[in-house]
């Protein structure tokens, strides 16, 4: 869609970060995000996601490597680069004693927006994020989800070409998370490149077209979401069958597992087509009522990629999220 000449929204090469105490947080990462993309940077806690974002928006001084944003090097052309970036940090970092509207308008002012224009923009984004009613409220009194949305409005006030969100939905309940996803998809559809970090796998899978996985300061996978998912050799489909099935039921040519009289699990290889599965079922005159994937495949793969699989406990699985939301 986009011409290959247009510069990447983000180009990182050989990026290293060693913190003052000597801790190596980034070991030399390369990353490329095309303009218009919706990109996920996925990784367990402590992987280096926030450090990477910190470097991009110059809150963290890098040790080595280069970063450019829409072709503007963050060292040599820092004003142009910074103008392109809007960032929603992981931690709340607005003045808790300031009113919601003032926070957004002041941020606009910092970017050089005259007050009148900043007010118009602030109204636009506060309305879009359902915060306009709260505009005169002191920000400290907002709920966690509202604070997160306030930071999104603040990040959009100068209408950046690249919006970076660091774990935007952490601690946000499921309902709100979905409406935030819808909002971000609209923002992306209107042409803004979005990068988000997350450790909710479901989030990356349902929102993003491309993905990089970061672990212990290294990028361990970087491709389109589709390719990455395709790398899994097998997937397990759960089929609900109209007819009753005996416990010793088998399906020719497939690894099949009887769950109950109306439900089976079938593993299919990458080379096999779902069509052939249906053909086999049809041959036995069975009708499929419904079909779904057994597990979150991304999740499985993620665990298989991590250097230290015990870290999977850091990852929030969808069923944990539901438990958390219903608690």
């Amino acid at each position: 869609m986009l011409s290959s000449q247009s510069p990447s929204a983000l180009a990182i090469s050989g990026l290293k970060k060693t913190y003052r105490e000597g801790f190596i947080a980034l070991k030399g990462i390369d990353l490329n995000v095309e303009a218009g993309d919706f990109f996920a940077l996925l990784g367990p806690n402590g992987a280096g996601k926030s450090t990477t974002i910190g470097v991009i928006c110059s809150l963290v001084a890098k040790t080595a490597g280069s970063v450019s944003v829409f072709g503007h090097d963050i060292d040599h052309d820092f004003a142009a680069a910074k103008r392109c970036i809007g960032v929603v940090p992981q931690e709340f970092n607005f003045n808790q004693f300031e009113k919601v509207l003032n926070i957004v308008v002041t941020q606009g002012g910092y970017y050089g927006l005259p007050r009148k224009e900043a007010l118009v923009r602030a109204e636009k984004y506060l309305r879009l994020l359902d915060l306009w009613d709260k505009r005169n409220v002191v920000s400290r009194t907002l709920s966690g989800g509202m604070k997160r949305r306030l930071m999104i409005a603040r990040a959009l006030v100068h209408e950046p070409k690249l919006l970076i969100l660091d774990e935007p939905t952490a601690g946000v309940d499921i309902e709100l998370r979905r409406s935030m996803w819808d909002f971000l998809q609209q923002v992306n559809a209107s042409g803004t490149t979005i990068i988000l970090t997350t450790h909710y796998l479901e989030e990356a899978e349902s929102l993003c077209r491309n993905i990089a996985i970061i672990d212990e300061g290294d990028i361990i996978a970087n491709s389109s979401m589709k390719d990455l998912l395709g790398k899994l050799s097998q997937e397990v489909l759960v089929l609900d069958i109209v007819e009753s099935l005996p416990p010793d039921f088998t399906l020719k040519g497939f690894d099949c597992n009887w769950v109950d009289a109306h439900c089976i699990e079938v593993s299919i290889d990458r080379e096999q087509h779902v069509n052939s599965l249906f053909a086999a079922l049809e041959a036995q005159q069975l009708q499929v009522k419904s079909l779904r994937n057994k597990a979150n495949r991304l999740e499985e793969m993620f665990v298989s990629l991590l250097k230290n699989p015990s870290k999977q406990s850091d990852i929030d699985y969808p069923h944990h999220e539901s438990a958390e939301a219903s608690a």
């Binding site: 110059s58 910074k82 940090p89 970092n93 970017y111």
Partner: peptide, 17 residues
């Protein structure tokens, strides 16, 4: 105070010299 609350970051991310 701004450093402590990290709201100084609001300024540091902008192109302002």
């Amino acid at each position: 105070g701004q450093k402590f609350a990290r709201s100084i970051e609001e300024l540091l991310i902008t192109p302002l010299p």
